[in-house]
Simulated scan of single mutants.
Amino acid sequence: MRAGIPEHGRVPKYYAVKARLEALLDELGEGGTLPTERDLAARFEVSRETVRQALRDLLILGRLQRRGRGTVVAGPKLEQPLSLVSYTEGVRAQGRVPGRTLIALDRLPAGAALGAQLRIAATDLVWHLERVLLADDERVGLESTYVPVQRFPQLGGEFDPDSSFYGYVRDRLGVRLATAEEKIETVLATPREALLIGTPPALPMLLLHRVSYEPDGRPVERVRSLYRGDRFSFTTRLSTG
C-alpha cells in the first residue's frame, strides 16, 4: 500500500470520492457546511451509498462533524499530553475553554479489583465522580474518578465539580502526584456513554485507564477516561533514557 492505494492500482470508488471530498473540505475551511449527499453524488457521479461511505470515513477521522441536520468541516483535534497534567490544563494550553458537566458524585464500596488498585479494603468506601468533559461547550469525553472516602472525606461538600480534581488536591489539600500507570485502548462506547457524550454508538473511542501515585508510592486515584476518537489525539515525548 502506498498513500492508501493498493500496489495493483485499483482504487476503491469510495476512496477516490473521499480524496475529492478532502480537497473540498480544504476549500470550505473550518465550519464550512458540506453539500447534501444527493448533491455530492451528482457532483462526483457516484451513488449516494458511495458518498455515504466516504463521509463515514471522514467523520471517524475527525475531518467532519454532524451539526443539526447538516455536516460541517471540523477543526483540528485536541492534543492531550500523556503526562500528569489535568484535563483542564491540557485543553487550556490549546486556547480552548475546558468545562465539565456533573453526572454523579456518590459513595460506594470499592470492591476487590478497585480496592487492590487503591490499596484499600474491598469494603472501604470510595467517591465515584463521573463527569462529561467539554471543550468550548462541545462534549468530547466522559471521565470517572475513584478516590478513597477516608482519604478525601470532604470531597462531596467542598469540591466544585466543574473544576480540576488535580488542582483541588494540589492547592487545597497539598497532595502532589508524582507518577502514574496508564493504559490506552480503542473501544466502542456503550449506549449510555454514547448518549452522555452525544455521539453515535459506532464511533471509535479512546479509553484511558490511569492510577496516580504520590511520591511515596501511595495511590491517590483510579481514573477511567473515555474520549471521542474523532476529536482527540494524544502526544508524548520519548527518549532513550
Rank of each mutant, 00 (worst) to 15 (best):
Y146Q: 01
A135V: 11
L155Q: 07
L105S: 12
G29T: 00
R228M: 14
L133C: 14
Q65W: 11
T235C: 05
R43A: 15
V169K: 02
L206M: 04
G99W: 10
R56P: 13
R192L: 14
L134I: 06
T240G: 05
P201G: 04
L129M: 12
L129A: 15
Q94A: 10
E30R: 14
A41S: 14
L206F: 00
A180K: 01
Q94C: 07
T235N: 04
L203C: 01
P109N: 13
P98Y: 11
S212G: 03
R224E: 11
D171H: 02
P191I: 09
Y15F: 10
R67Q: 14
R222K: 08
L208Y: 05
T101L: 13
L78M: 05
L28T: 09
D216V: 09
G156K: 00
P81Q: 12
S86A: 09
Y166Q: 04
D160G: 01
E89Y: 04
S233I: 10
R10M: 00
E89K: 15
G174K: 10
P161V: 11
D230V: 03
Q117Y: 14
L28K: 02
R92T: 13
T88W: 01
T101H: 09
P148T: 12
L207E: 12
Y146E: 01
P6W: 00
R170Q: 13
Q94T: 11
D136R: 08
Y166G: 04
T123C: 01
P191N: 11
R38A: 04
R237Q: 14
T88V: 12
D137T: 12
I184W: 13
P200S: 05
G157P: 05
K18F: 02
L25Y: 00
A113K: 09
L61N: 13
T33P: 00
